[in-house]
Amino acid sequence: MMEEIVKPENLVYAKSKLLTDAPMHYCPGCSHGTVHKILAELIGELGIQDKSVGIAPVGCAVMLYNYLDIDWVEAAHGRAPAVATGLKRTNPNLHIFAYQGDGDLAAIGTAEIIHACNRGENITIVFINNGIYGMTGGQMAPTTLLGMKTATSPQGRKADLNGYPFKVSEMMAQLSGVSYVTRQAVHTPSAVRQTKKALKKAFEKAYAGKGTSFVEVVATCSSGWKLSPTEANRWMAENMLPFYPLGEIKDI
């Protein structure tokens, strides 16, 4: 029976060849693994494995280079857009993308992201926004929602003490160097497909020299949020998405 079904023509889904066999270190329910899988599929389908270099961040995705079979550079905290700039300016034939979380991109790396985008570097930025610092143990991020409890806002984020959550994508859309800004998520199968479509457009536009592509992925951090994977998806849809609405923000 099995022999009859397991045939190449019946294959509807397979692990991307670009994903290595290294077991991912992420917590159950974490969005990183899904976004990595999308990137692996996309780079494979575009046939650009030999022309792609990724910049890994500091944060939970610091070991990203263990999982995708392409060349990688691991950057200092927040500096990935500057590293990507140096690489792309001297290697215009490479596809360069930086993968950053909200602490990396929206706190310590704000200068680097704003200026790389404003210069219109022909790179793709993948911005994972889960409103928390995952790796260091669930501290408050610039994107933490008001009232959200974290290790450094145990009573919930208060505007008078901590300021306001910060909509990075809307800010990047203001910059003339940026040609594509979108906000996506990976909490449902259809959202995964949308994110893949968005990343494909982002890669193609950046490589075509249209300027910076900026893809935000609103993500879960079940450990940091102290929720089960299922609850985290639900919490994200009910709390994060009203403040960080999904969809295309800029496409020129």
């Binding site: 500057a82 700039t85 140096g86 001297t90 290697n91």
Partner: peptide, 26 residues
């Protein structure tokens, strides 16, 4: 040769890091 004015010394040295990663004289 590429010449680029960065937004800070922090950015310049990280641009150097990026280009040096590709084996460039930077």
């Amino acid at each position: 040769m590429v010449v680029l004015q960065a937004e800070s010394e922090t950015a310049s040295i990280n641009m150097v890091y990026g280009a040096a990663s590709a084996g460039k004289r930077v």
